[in-house]
Amino acid sequence: MNLDFLTIDVGTILFTLINTLLIFLAFKHFLFGRVDAILEKRRQELTDTYAAAEDARSAASADQEKYAKAIAGAKAEADEIVRRAEKTAQSKGDAILETARAEAHAAREKAQLETERERLRARSELQGEISGLAVELAGKILEKEIDPSDHERLIADFLSNAEHAGDEA
């Protein structure tokens, strides 16, 4: 049995209304509802990612500031250390220089003293030698007939000897 080609059938209209409602609910639930949810979730994730990135950026900026401050502090400390070290080195160097100068002074004094003593010793030796020479000369004069010329020569020798000794001393 078939309906007429063009007929208004209340049953079909009612069924079609219900069917349209069903397919609408299927679209709403399975397509639009789910896709909307996933789009919203994606949007939320994107927002969260941006927020996280912003947080990380500000944290990094804060860290950088902190490090800059720390580096500045370290630099000041280093300057202070260098300054102190320089001061210490200066005072130490001064002390060393002072000691060295004092030592040099003492050494020079000692050397002078030594020289003086040596000189005195040489002089006393020379004196002894001259006395010996004089005695020897006297002995030679006495033991020889001395002619005036010999006499004169002896004296000249003696003098030259004495001069020589004096020069050496």
Binding site: L3, G11, T12, F15, T16, N19, I23
Partner: peptide, 20 residues
Amino acid sequence: VTINLTETVVLSWVIILAVT
């Protein structure tokens, strides 16, 4: 009121089921 279950309605159900 006579309610007819026609070819149209059954085919609509097939379509709805397939689409769902």
